[in-house]
Amino acid sequence: MSALLIGIAQRDLRIAFQQKSELVQPLMFLLMVVTLFPLGVSPSPDTLQRIGPGVIWIAAILSSLLGLERLFRDDFNDGSLEQYTLSGVPLSAIAAVKVLVHWLVSFVPLLILSPLLALFLNLTLPMYIALLLTLLVGTPLLSLIGAIAVALTIGLQRGGVLLALLLIPVFIPLLIFATSAVDSAALQLPYYPQLAIIGAMLLLALALAPFAIAYSLKVSQN
């Protein structure tokens, strides 16, 4: 069982690094969305510092929506997903591994890119540390919950916009707590409560999402 799971993880990682453009494009999108705000709202450092955390989080959510579909689409189209279902290993475990790999290849680069975004939006160092922590705890949540919606819409031809419609309302609490943590950091206030709440949501999703993903995949395969 563990051999199969490790095999899937290795295979997914290899595929992800072979298709580099798919990895880089959502990141470039993120960068460009963030660039639009100083141009569209105001380039004044104070304004940027005030809206910065929200902008980065909104851009992260939007760019994550672009890359999510990749999570199960290829496996669904070439039939390997059916093989996984028949392999005897719980589908929820396979789903968890795939989500983990997806997080590694799509959000870890985002974490690496985040200092640049913080510079663009004139965030102070405490703000940046808070932002990094919220991204670290919050982005796995994006992958986990996003995977449920991807699993549901995988069999559909026109899944793209639908995915956004399904997920954006669900991500709102995360956005609220994450930006408020950074805002608290800006005021030199403790922001652990917000982080703890995001952590609680992550644990809840970690416990429930793999089963929801597995069930959704079964529904999609019919």
Binding site: I148, A149, V170, I176
Partner: peptide
């Protein structure tokens, strides 16, 4: 199939309704 899929989404949503409610109130 659509009914089942929408059902899962409704369940995901219902877990979120209280979280949304309190987060928005607090925000």
């Amino acid at each position: 199939q659509g009914g089942k899929a929408a059902g899962i989404m409704a369940l995901v949503g219902v877990i979120n309704v209280p979280i949304i409610h309190y987060s928005v109130e607090w925000w």
